[in-house]
Simulated assay, not measured.
Amino acid sequence: MVILIFIAVLWYSGLFFQTFFLHRYAAHQTYKMSRFGEKLCYVLTWITQGSNYLSAYGYGVMHRMHHAYADTEKDPHSPKYDHNLFTMMWRTKSIYQQINQQKVKIEEKFTKNVPQWEGFDKFASSWGSRIGWAIGYTAFFYFFATAWWQWILLPVAYMMAPIHGVIINWFGHIYGYVNFKVSDTSKNLFHFDWLMMGEGYHNNHHKHGGRANFGGVRWHEIDVTYYIMILLDKMKLIQLKPVAKVTREL
């Protein structure tokens, strides 16, 4: 039971900062926050994602490119141009690293106002940090695993963020339903997105990329992350941009 709770905590805490900070803030800037809040989110992203830490800059720029080039040859991750999810994610990793390490020239529209903390990213993305977290995860399993099958979950702990990416960027472009006609294959993966905290409403998001609430188009589309953001807004920790009500087209 301890191991299952550990995996659940890693899953939802890491996912929250991916969707709240990396996605809705760094890439789409659906809200504002102080410089201190931004720095704190960097540190909390590192703590919750651990061995699979993602840079706000690398993620933000790449995600903007995904929206601009969705399901074309320039898309950093599209099932349409990769034979399987492993080749897609390997290509995604390569593009992410090139962006994050600034080894490729990027148009200004993709980098404008994307937060960047180079010193912290260098530390949090280092092999020393990643291996340190991996050792910590392994030690936790050593002390608390009570059955052989629980060790199968250890690679999930190591690779949590890439697994989150696969669910949305691969399966969210193949399976599900649509509310809007868009120029790509994005779909709403779940009717109620309990697994991905709102990220699964991918078709809604591709239609209204700058909207903080990924759900809310149908009655059952509850975006848990957005309701947490409302609470943070009321606490004056962030400042949400107005969210327009939208109606499905299909």
Results as ranks from 00 to 15, higher is better:
Leu10Ala: 07
Leu10His: 06
Tyr12Cys: 10
Phe17Val: 02
Phe21Ser: 00
Leu22Pro: 00
Leu22Thr: 00
Ala27Glu: 01
His28Tyr: 07
Gln29Ser: 12
Tyr31Leu: 02
Tyr31Val: 00
Met33Cys: 08
Leu40Asn: 03
Tyr42Met: 05
Tyr42Lys: 03
Val43Trp: 09
Gln49Met: 13
Ser51Asp: 09
Tyr53Lys: 04
Tyr53Arg: 03
Arg64Ala: 01
His67Asp: 11
Ala70Ser: 15
Ala70Cys: 15
Asp71Cys: 10
Asp75Ala: 08
His77Ser: 10
Pro79Gln: 05
Tyr81Gly: 03
Tyr81Glu: 03
Asp82Asn: 15
Met89Asn: 07
Ser94Pro: 01
Ile95Thr: 05
Glu108Cys: 06
Pro115Asp: 08
Asp121Gln: 10
Lys122Arg: 15
Phe123Ile: 15
Ser125Glu: 11
Ser129His: 12
Ile131Tyr: 15
Gly132Ala: 07
Tyr137Asn: 04
Ala139Cys: 13
Thr146Arg: 11
Trp148Arg: 12
Trp148Cys: 05
Ile152Tyr: 11
Pro155Ser: 09
Gly165Leu: 13
Val166Arg: 03
Ile167Pro: 00
Ile168Asn: 00
His173Phe: 03
Ile174Glu: 09
Tyr175Trp: 14
Tyr177Cys: 05
Asp184Val: 11
Asp193Gln: 10
Met197His: 03
Met197Leu: 15
His208Thr: 07
Arg211Gly: 01
Val217Thr: 12
Ile222Lys: 04
Asp223Ser: 05
Val224Pro: 01
Tyr226Pro: 00
Leu231Ser: 09
Leu232Glu: 02
Lys236Ser: 12
Lys236Phe: 15
Leu237Asn: 06
Ile238Val: 15
Leu240Phe: 12
Val243Arg: 05
Ala244Cys: 08
Glu249Ala: 07
